[in-house]
Amino acid sequence: MHHTLARARRTFAAAGLVAACAVLPSAPLSSAAPSSGTALRTAAAAGGCDVLAPGASAAAEAAVRAACSQLGVWYSWGGGHGPQPGATYGQVDPTDPASNHDPERRGFDCSGLVRYAYAQATGEDILNGTANSQYHSSRVTARFGAGQGTGPLLPGDLLGWGGANSIHHIAVYLGAGKMVEARQSGTHVMVSDVRLGGDYNGAVRIGGSPAPSGTFSTWGTDVWTHVEPSTTSARVSKFAGPTRVKVGCQKHAQLVEADGYRNDAWSYLPDYQAWITNIYIQGPAWLDGVPTCA
């Protein structure tokens, strides 16, 4: 999702930066020992970790089952960010005393688990990065605001917590209000109820292929384009749901407030000969790789 003016691009993670999950509101911690192999799959089934609703793509369902296969593996800060997707020993998070044993624990942090799940599902390492970079990946094909709850979500969608361009935690939706996550140090990969309060930011849906250069996806429902970069100008086209669009250029114009976001950036869509506020285009507030309109 996107975009306040504060969502202007920031380099959130340099190469090799640990993709950590912040300590989250407390919940009963699991004391179970890590599992492996067949025991993991048995634990996943026993823990209700599976595709719990219809409608998801085959890749998304495979990602759910890959994440569920790791049920019971340690949370480990920085785990899962080795050269290849998969559990690794973690690091000490200087802000979290509970992580002191993470260098001894082979496991995943939140984004490490998501990376592994989609690598197993697609055969490609398509989400190698932080929770924030995964949430804003070019592989995102649909985006859902926090206010939409879990109603429009499908298994395999990724739920994110944090600010506009500072997502600090990410989890895989199962359906039926449940998710699988690597939550925080001292716990194991677990099934949880979706937490819609606090700094829950929304969810994204992952596709198999990145968008062509200069092509982005809109989000939201019944989103109008306009003749000029202003909501008071005449309407041109309405996007009933997420739509792939070619963006020719972008410029600063009318400041728009919508769906909890503020942004003065507008994009010109040459195929529609119309403008759309960048609030409804997936990506940062000022789109990467798109030139400024003359």
Rank of each mutant, 00 (worst) to 15 (best):
G162A: 13
G163V: 06
G163W: 08
A164H: 15
A164V: 09
N165I: 15
I167Y: 00
I167T: 11
H168K: 13
H169G: 05
H169R: 13
I170K: 01
I170R: 00
I170L: 08
V172W: 00
L174V: 08
L174T: 03
G175S: 11
G177I: 05
G177T: 13
K178P: 10
M179A: 15
M179D: 09
V180G: 07
V180E: 02
E181V: 14
E181I: 12
A182Q: 15
A182Y: 13
R183H: 12
R183S: 13
Q184V: 11
Q184T: 14
S185P: 07
S185N: 07
G186H: 00
T187A: 13
T187K: 06
T187V: 10
H188L: 15
H188C: 09
V189W: 11
M190A: 11
M190Y: 00
M190I: 05
M190T: 06
V191H: 15
S192T: 14
S192E: 14
S192R: 13
S192V: 09
R195C: 04
R195S: 11
R195A: 06
L196Q: 02
G198S: 04
D199E: 14
D199I: 05
N201W: 12
N201H: 14
N201E: 08
V204M: 07
V204C: 05
R205K: 07
I206M: 02
I206K: 00
G207S: 01
G207M: 01
G208Y: 02
S209A: 04
P210C: 02
P212V: 13
P212R: 07
S213T: 15
G214Q: 04
G214F: 08
T215D: 09
F216R: 01
T218G: 14
W219I: 08
G220D: 05
G220P: 15
T221N: 03
D222I: 02
D222G: 12
D222K: 03
V223F: 01
V223P: 00
W224S: 15
E228Y: 15
E228G: 13
E228S: 10
P229Y: 13
P229I: 04
P229G: 05
P229W: 01
P229M: 06
S230G: 07
S230I: 08
T232A: 14
T232V: 11
T232R: 08
S233A: 13
S233G: 07
